[in-house]
Amino acid sequence: MDNILEVRNLTKRFHGLLAIDRVTFALERNQILGLIGPNGAGKTTLVSLVSGTLQPTEGSVLFEGKPIHRLAGFRRALLGIARTFQVMRPFPGLTVLDNVAVGALFGAAGSTRQLAAAREDANRWLHFVGLDHRVRQRADALGGPDRKRLELAKALAMRPKLLLLDEVMAGLNPVEIEEVITVIKKVRDQGISIVVIEHVMKAIQSLSDRLLVLHHGEKIAEGKPQEVLRNDQVIAAYLGSKRR
């Protein structure tokens, strides 16, 4: 079995709060892992620990078999890890094109170092996510759904091996959600392994090879989507709290 990502006993404490509590899981290469759980469960924190935006209190993260949890965020990007931000972080004063060009200029090793080539690359990714009509606009002129697409294009331009998507479908309408699902499937078909955080159940079921459920920072279930979603504990913790 070829695991691109292994997380072992990962723990993150914010002062008193245990945001991630001894979480262990693995992601096989070229698979999609769905990460679900109620608000405040620790999903974003887990992504930040893997991408290097946060440093863990305890535990380890292995990428392609090598420990990375002590590496700075930019080094993990160079190794091939890319993420999107739930609270979007575009470069507001840059054009949409140049936002994505930054991903092509930096990102995983082997990316282009020339600005002209990076912009060409950026154009291709913007076409891929369906943003080609906005390339010349400033990023802060985009509306919510387009900002989500921009986050995705920026991450893809980095040519990652592992892509962490933090609620890229939140706030999109059903048609837009279908489009993003298609894009994510195409990305996986290019050989990229993916972790998706999503609240839209239909989307997560159609995308994920496996599901992992977090609740109060703990992993409460993991497995095939149909099985996990039938789990009583999951229904109580997640689906129950959503319906109320």
Binding site: S51, F74, R89, P90, F106, G107
Partner: peptide, 24 residues
């Protein structure tokens, strides 16, 4: 118009995002 300058601009525009995208 250089890679270096784009790194600087990315830092100015959003430093956390710049780091995640691979800017030292």
């Amino acid at each position: 118009r250089s890679r270096f300058g784009f790194g600087l601009i990315a830092i100015r525009e959003n430093e956390v995002a710049a780091a995640v995208m691979g800017v030292n």
